[in-house]
């Protein structure tokens, strides 16, 4: 078990080191997220009083779009530069390869959100967040499920000519619970208006997260290049 966890961490660290050298993916993803905030203002001409109404949806759209592009890109680079081959030879269970990749993408997205959230709060003229804990819980749970499924599907679509277009097409329909739940929880956290449904959303996201971390870990082997 300990050796397995060490393998997962080592694999994640390998990706983190490569990313630290260039900072390409994190820069592109973060700036794309911020661009969505600007586009939202252009598209809906949002006044400060309505900021809270648009904030949760805009934030999630930004996270999902930017994250998808980021993961597709990172998977594509792995494919083109053959970075997947080394780890594929490692004497560890194949699920460790998935979990390492997943962990790297998760940390990357949480970093991006760390930059995006303050900017979004300012851009949508919020006076802070009523329930910060709930806000963070919703964001982390939603991101976890998103990144877990995204890691599986990005890895699998990386060999495709149409990677950039195919990933969102296959990923977004499956992400319906994350999109709905994420927006519902963030809305409750921003307004402080917690209902019994908020708890149900949190549990639903948790079920989604656990399920779509475990199932891809089992199936990841099938989508690796053999």
């Amino acid at each position: 078990m300990k050796a397995y966890l060490r393998a997962v961490l080592t694999l994640a660290r390998k990706d983190a080191l490569l990313e630290r050298k260039s900072l390409e993916t994190v820069t592109a993803t973060a700036s794309f997220t911020l661009l969505v905030a600007v586009l939202f203002h252009f598209a809906f001409d949002i006044r400060s009083a309505e900021g809270a109404r648009f904030f949760p949806g805009a934030l999630w759209i930004a996270v999902l779009f930017a994250g998808t592009i980021g993961m597709a890109r990172s998977a594509r680079i792995d494919e083109v530069e053959g970075r997947g081959r080394g780890p594929a030879l490692a004497p560890v269970d194949r699920s460790a390869l998935f979990l390492g990749k997943f962990l790297f993408h998760l940390v990357l997205m949480l970093l991006v959100e760390g930059v995006a959230v303050p900017v979004f709060i300012a851009a949508f003229a919020l006076r802070g967040v009523a329930l910060p804990h709930l806000f963070i819980a919703g964001l982390v749970l939603g991101t976890w499920g998103f990144v877990a499924l995204g890691t599986l599907l990005a890895g699998a679509t990386s060999g495709e000519r149409s990677t950039g277009l195919l990933l969102p097409l296959v990923l977004f329909p499956l992400l319906t619970p994350v999109a709905l739940g994420g927006v519902a929880i963030v809305t409750a956290a921003v307004t402080g208006d917690v209902t019994p449904a908020t708890g149900t959303w949190l549990r639903l996201l948790l079920v989604f997260d656990v399920l779509f971390t475990a199932v891809p870990a089992l199936l990841y082997e099938s989508v690796l290049e053999v």
Binding site: L153, A156, G159, T176, P177, T200, L204, L211, F212, S222
Partner: peptide, 29 residues
């Protein structure tokens, strides 16, 4: 491509697992 065919199979399985969650979440919505 064998790999893409296996990916389609993985997607088919993941989709079926997801549909109940999708339905439950839109009902909640």
């Amino acid at each position: 491509s064998q790999r893409q065919k296996r990916f389609a199979a993985v997607f088919g399985i993941v989709g079926v697992i997801d549909i109940p969650l999708v339905h439950y979440s839109v009902v909640l919505w």
